[in-house]
């Protein structure tokens, strides 16, 4: 299958999946924006007002970390069980499994773009940032998207073999939320614990995005982008290896 055919099939499946979901309830689309908005509102209240985290443009800082975090975690949690929920389809026809997974990740990405435009962009403009910096966003989003896709690939294959992967992933995310500098800046981590952030792959995907949105520092952006791309390549290789190793047993276990 050519890349173009793969892309067309992924698009078709994404549109059909959204059509199917919103035919059931239009409130679903409101939820897509309401969910991050509520999370942002509650966290802004707790961390800014109750815990009094003090830093310039905190609300923009928080949104710049929270939106990619929500995209990363919800896409992985929605994508991990996708082969098991679509097992009958995969067993029934010669359908490229990656089209199904690609459509799921695309769905999550569209939600991310919607919440970016409807929530983050107004804040960004309110804080009087240069719209020119936004031109760097596609660069910052590429490793985030590829990294999320690769990790979802690995976990969705493993979920076919161990059906509780998604529960474990959810638990790990709830721990990582506190260990990832999303609602606090990285500088808050004492030097002795710097390794906690260095070992956290999600941080590498979030940082270029946040540098564009909040810091606006071009000197920091390029090294962060390179690191982010490097981590995305490692996870892509991992996803590829896991698929090669498990391909045969995949259909047996579905």
């Amino acid at each position: 299958m050519s890349l173009r055919q793969f892309w067309i099939q992924t698009q078709d499946l994404t549109i059909a999946s959204m059509k199917s979901r919103y035919r059931k309830t239009w409130a679903g689309f409101i939820w897509v924006v309401l969910n991050p908005l509520l999370m942002f509102g509650v966290q802004a209240l707790v961390f800014r007002k109750f815990l009094r985290i003090d830093m310039p443009d905190y609300l923009l800082f928080l949104l710049g970390g929270l939106l990619p975090w929500i995209f990363f975690t919800t896409t992985i949690q929605m994508g991990t069980p996708v082969f098991v929920t679509q097992a009958q389809l995969l067993r029934s026809f010669k359908v490229n499994p990656w089209v199904i997974l690609g459509a799921q990740v695309m769905d999550g990405f569209i939600n991310f773009v919607a919440s970016f435009v409807l929530i983050l962009l107004p804040f960004y403009l309110f804080y009087d940032r240069s719209p020119l910096l936004l031109a760097l966003l596609p660069l910052a989003l590429a490793p985030l998207l590829i990294g999320t896709l690769s990790i979802t690939v690995t976990l969705s294959i493993l979920n076919v073999f161990h059906r509780d992967i998604n529960f474990v992933t959810g638990f790990v995310f709830s721990l990582l939320f506190f260990l990832t500098p999303i609602f606090y800046p990285r500088e808050f981590i004492p030097p002795g614990y710097a390794w906690v952030a260095a070992l956290n792959p999600i941080l590498y995907f979030i940082e270029p995005f946040r540098l564009v949105i909040h810091t606006g520092s071009l000197e920091e952006f390029l090294p962060a982008l390179l690191k982010s791309a490097g981590v995305a390549v490692v996870f892509t290789a991992l996803g590829f290896l896991v698929w090669k190793r498990k391909q045969n047993d995949f259909y047996l276990k579905l």
């Binding site: 067309i8 059909a16 199917s20 035919r23 059931k24 067993r91 029934s92 089209v99």
Partner: peptide, 22 residues
């Protein structure tokens, strides 16, 4: 197996269009 569509919520025609693409 013939007992499966892709999106059960969608009509037979919509499922057939999607499957035809695949």
């Amino acid at each position: 197996d013939t007992g499966t569509g892709i999106m059960p919520e969608l009509t037979g025609r919509e499922n057939a269009l999607l499957l035809a693409r695949l």
